[in-house]
């Protein structure tokens, strides 16, 4: 099967800083693939390189078997869309939801805007009442729903998700994650999702790559991660850290003694 997205030996260099040092991943059609790592690991850079927003120094990115050039064409953008991390920064502050959703249709010269906008709003659970609001009249979760609607309105097959819920409250995060799973099922989408939160990634993705300092440390299936079947120390450390704070007995015994 041709992978929906394949990245081979990708290098990204910003002013001599090697943000990605030869990264390779393959994502199958309909798969949900996760990228986990801490800040500076290059996980977001990889996502942005796929979207054409980062300077690629060498390596190839292929979409459905076809290599992508330096410049992306409109057909690419109709196929690949992105949802950003910060819902407060990803919506134009002076545009209504209606205008935001109209823009991709206008750029791609799609006629049946009215119907598509209504469908997209319904799909993300906002409804017509939100259509003419400005972004400052929306909550964080509602903004992220609008961002998802904007990404879906061109009917892409691959969605790039850059920490889509890390700026949201836990309860809102659950709603947005459920929504994302729903649209993935309905539209048979392929996800490439970046997150620092192991729990979110294992919940959303079938397979994932752990990244550190611009390299892929380990690629594994989510069930293996959940069962602690990991090989690399770094992955183990991440896994332990996401379990919450553990007081070593020594110090708690000491504090108990002092009290």
């Amino acid at each position: 099967m041709t992978p929906a997205l394949a990245v081979t030996d990708l290098e990204v260099v910003f002013d001599r800083f090697r943000a990605l040092k030869g990264v390779s991943i393959t994502v199958q059609p309909g798969e949900s693939f996760g990228l986990v790592g801490e800040s500076g690991s290059g996980k977001s850079t990889l996502l942005r390189a796929v979207a054409g927003l980062a300077p690629v120094a060498s390596g190839t990115i292929t979409l459905d078997g076809k290599p992508l050039g330096r410049r992306r064409d409109k057909a690419f953008y109709a196929k690949v869309q992105m949802v950003f991390q910060d819902p407060y920064g990803s919506l134009h502050p002076r545009q209504t939801v209606d205008r935001l959703l109209q823009e991709p249709l206008a750029v791609h010269g799609i006629g049946d805007g009215e119907k598509r906008i209504q469908r997209a709003l319904d799909e993300v659970g906002l409804g017509a009442g939100f259509r003419f609001r400005y972004s400052h009249q929306l909550s964080g979760g509602q903004r992220q729903r609008v961002a998802i609607a904007r990404a879906l309105i061109l009917e892409p097959s691959i969605l790039l998700l850059d920490e889509p819920t890390s700026a949201l409250d836990a309860s809102v995060q659950a709603e947005v994650l459920n929504l994302l799973e729903q649209v993935r099922r309905d539209r048979a989408l392929t996800f490439l999702m970046v997150s620092h939160d192991l729990a979110v990634v294992t919940h959303m993705c079938g397979r994932l790559a752990v990244m550190q300092n611009g390299e892929v440390v380990e690629t594994l299936a989510s069930p293996d991660l959940a069962a602690h079947r990991v090989e690399k120390d770094y992955t183990k450390r991440l896994l332990n850290a996401s379990g919450g704070f553990v007081r070593d007995d020594d110090s708690s015994a000491r504090s108990a003694h002092e009290a």
């Binding site: 836990a170 309860s171 995060q173 659950a174 709603e175 994650l177 459920n178 799973e181 729903q182 939160d197 192991l198 729990a199 979110v200 294992t202 919940h203 959303m204 991660l225 959940a226 069962a227 896994l239 996401s242």
Partner: peptide, 22 residues
């Protein structure tokens, strides 16, 4: 309880996640 429940947990296979009903 809702706040505790709605967070994804590693190893817990809950699709969809329970949502907090305010």
């Amino acid at each position: 309880r809702g706040l505790l429940d709605c967070m994804p947990k590693i190893g817990a296979d809950r699709h969809p996640l329970p949502v907090l009903q305010r």
